[in-house]
Design a protein around this nucleic acid. Structure first.
Lengths: 213, 213
DNA sequence: ACCTGAACACCGTTCAAGT
DNA sequence: ACCTGAACACCGTTCAAGT
């Protein structure tokens, strides 16, 4: 029983039932094996789920254009962030698995190197690049964590949220009510809006001449 | 047995043992009661933990200066974000409880109204204010989720992370290695750096005349 | 060597029975 | 009315015993 096959089956179960309903027993059942056998490959449930997260991070590359290092720093960052978003959109229940620790596995490191390299190549100092990476990473992870929530299929949640905010007491919540109609049409749009805000901030730190290169 | 007392005891247990080790049975034991009794006040474990999150959000106000609406929009936003950070620093294991759903309870709504109101009062359009709020909220929640991770007492994690990155293969990870020395001295510094980036981006959207008011 | 049934010490949730 | 012991259907983890 190869390790990779166990992890792949675990990901399928998490995708289908959510991380909460995933259990070693259900995984063993699916593999026609026993839970005790799983302990021959993993130190425990948490170890296994870390490998699942690593597998998902490995899919990010497939959402990246072939030649990433061909645009401006901004295009490259947007492409990478989008790839992460698309990946977690496909595996919504796995974003929470990254929760802690900024992905120190192989694939997490590769992504970090990719982004830091892009920024440094375009003239940012390692210090700014490092800060920018951490901010973007936290933003993306925090955001994708929302993907696991209740039926978030293309704005269904957005519409009901709009109604909820619009129906609040306008005396107690004037700003919230007046902003209700501007709630995102989709999580994807919201993701891009926030990312733009971050990147605009970063552009103020760009060396002269690097802002548009 | 008042509801508030149960929630307060639950928060103490989560603070002490972490959200993973918290169980209804341990809570019942601590209250010299039985788990069945808890179901007279809450529909289940999840309901109870939502109330715990709500209790924590209620503590944010105590970290805010008495007169919040006295500074620039930037000062007000930094104060609010800092208050959130300080709150979750005191209850590190509770940040993950907010995970999904952008805090729709009473205290979450009050915070939202506070921030949206501040931005709109300072000349931002409801549309920009709404986008900014969501971005900042995701950033803060995503960031505070890290607080629950392994012993993160004042840079201990930062130092070991620096060593880890500095020790990587410089051929495969040149940018990561060269940035290693710029890793945050503390999570708090990192938090402020990323927030500055976001707010710089927001400042580009400020109406002329509002940028420094 | 590789696997597994069964056990251990837990869970969340429910309900008949107690006061 | 308000509470609870005990049961039910699960967990993750371990280990002696099987092939």
């Amino acid at each position: 029983m190869p390790r990779a096959q166990i992890v792949a089956a675990a990901l399928e179960l998490v995708d289908a039932d959510g991380a909460d309903d995933f259990s070693l027993r259900s995984l063993a059942r699916r593999l026609n094996s026993s839970t005790a056998t799983l302990y021959r490959h993993f130190s425990g449930k948490e170890d296994l789920l870390v490998q699942v997260a690593e597998l998902v991070l490995g899919e990010v590359r497939s959402h990246l254009p072939d030649e990433v290092d061909r645009g401006s720093w901004r295009e490259e960052l947007v492409a990478t962030a989008d790839a992460l978003y698309l990946t977690f959109e496909e595996h919504p229940h796995t974003a929470s698995l990254l929760g802690n620790s900024v992905a120190l596995g192989q694939n997490g490191l590769v992504l970090r190197e990719l982004v830091l390299g892009s920024l440094i190549n375009h003239g940012f100092s390692p210090e700014i690049a490092s800060k920018a990476y951490t901010s973007i990473a936290h933003y993306v992870i925090g955001f994708c964590g929302q993907l696991g929530g209740s039926d978030s299929s293309a704005g269904a949640e957005g519409r009901s949220l709009r109604k909820y905010f619009a129906g609040l007491d306008p005396v107690r919540y004037p700003a919230t009510v007046s902003s209700a109609s501007f709630l995102p049409t989709s999580l994807r749009d919201e993701f891009r809006s926030g990312l733009d805000l971050l990147l605009d901030g970063l552009s103020l730190r760009a060396h002269a001449g690097s802002t548009t290169a």
